[in-house]
Design a protein around this nucleic acid. Structure first.
Lengths: 225, 225
DNA sequence: AGAACCATACTACCATACAAGACGACAGTC
DNA sequence: GACTGTCGTCTTGTATGGTAGTATGGTTCT
């Protein structure tokens, strides 16, 4: 049942990177805020070295920017880059959906129904964090079921940025329930073995996600670059 | 003219990571070989710390695998993973080619012709390394010209793995010249503003690259997993 | 002879200390 | 008053020592 709380994996550096990643995506560290190696090290009770490695990892996913000898800051949200990211994600995930409709692992299929039910529950509770976690699990399961788990690797970084923005756009339960319905629509096309419909459903799904972005940019201009 | 030799950028860690990356892709460190932090540190005349950060970076791109408290090894080539990677890369790059045919930055357009001429030259000289570098520059320029530079970010890691395999498959000048011709075919479709043709040309191009992979796996089974 | 056991040499990992660059405040000068 | 040079304090970057875990080879017991 605790598939949602990822365990404190392996090294301290990995653990801290995961923690910081969550904190950044959930806006606990808002865009533009500074991240001091020393402060974080003190917070987590470790040395600067693992913190440094964690920040390097986050910099690689473009969630933070390390300015040499100056400091590390959480990158601001860029609508333009977000749209570019959507383009790439759309290219990958529509291809995955198409392949899923051609052949899908039956074992993964039943798991997805469970995921969607759980996602619907947390959506009704208006629980952002759990919702996004199940959203991620859905897309992972879809890629794995289609036999291209590696595709997720390429998408995960982009999705992290999107999820951060969605913490501003996903304000009510209705919107989240809509997204769950879109997930079900994708699976319906997959079950019908209709590649074109699956790709189209995924296309609409990804289009919907960032629809409200320009509005929140006007509301929170300080979070954007 | 020295656009091919990337400068020793910023920190020692980044410099060493770039060096190791080149060495791995060019098979100077063959798949399966061990990479000791200490040895590399001594080789490059630096401490173990920047080497460690470099190895962590390479592990993130799946070029090496860090086994905690045991050692770091160059990952072996996996035909299955390579095919999965091609699937993802195909999804992204055909979308890029399609968009390029819809609208392309004129300034980037002229640069590409220069790149292709240079690539043809080094192909005639049978210079693997330079060829792959210009190949990379071509795909980057195409993405930038199409206005989705971020797409390259998602492709670069996959291409690194492919390039490593291609060091085994690209043995003669003829094959390289064929690939240049495929590049020109893509650009012809772009110039003709024919998205479908551009995507199809890219599709064929990426299909060709790994065609000889099963053969080299039979010849060098020790390099594969 | 075979197998369990232990010492040793290796590894990645973390903590600490030091170095070098960047920014801001302040004093001195024109 | 505006400009400039210098010093102090922040930051990240690098070096080094020490720790825990793993594999390996020799040894001892059965």
């Amino acid at each position: 049942m605790d598939a949602i709380t990822s365990p404190p994996s392996g090294s301290a550096a990995q653990r801290i990177e995961a923690e910081l990643r969550r904190a950044i995506i959930s806006m606990a560290h808002p865009p533009g805020s500074r991240l001091s190696e020393q402060d974080i090290a003190a917070t987590y009770g470790v040395s600067r070295q693992p913190v440094r490695e964690a920040l390097i990892g986050l910099a690689r996913t473009r969630l933070v920017e390390i300015l040499p000898q100056r400091g590390t800051v959480v990158v601001k949200i860029s609508t333009r880059k977000m749209m570019e990211g959507r383009f790439v994600r759309e290219a990958i995930e529509t291809a995955v959906a198409r392949r899923a409709a051609e052949s899908f692992d039956p074992a993964a299929r039943v798991r997805i129904d469970d995921l969607l039910d759980l996602q619907q529950k947390v959506a009704q509770r208006n629980d952002h964090t759990a919702f996004q976690r199940y959203d991620e699990l859905f897309h992972i399961a879809l890629a794995e079921g289609a036999g291209c788990a590696m595709a997720w690797q390429a998408v995960s970084d982009i999705k992290a940025h999107m999820d951060r923005a969605c913490h501003l756009t996903l304000t009510n339960a209705e919107t989240m329930l809509e997204l769950v319905e879109q997930h079900r629509a994708i699976m319906a096309a997959v079950d019908a073995c209709n590649p074109a419909a699956a790709a189209e459903a995924m296309h609409c799904h990804l289009r919907e996600i960032l629809r409200a972005l320009p509005k929140v940019e006007a509301e929170h201009p300080d979070l954007f670059e």
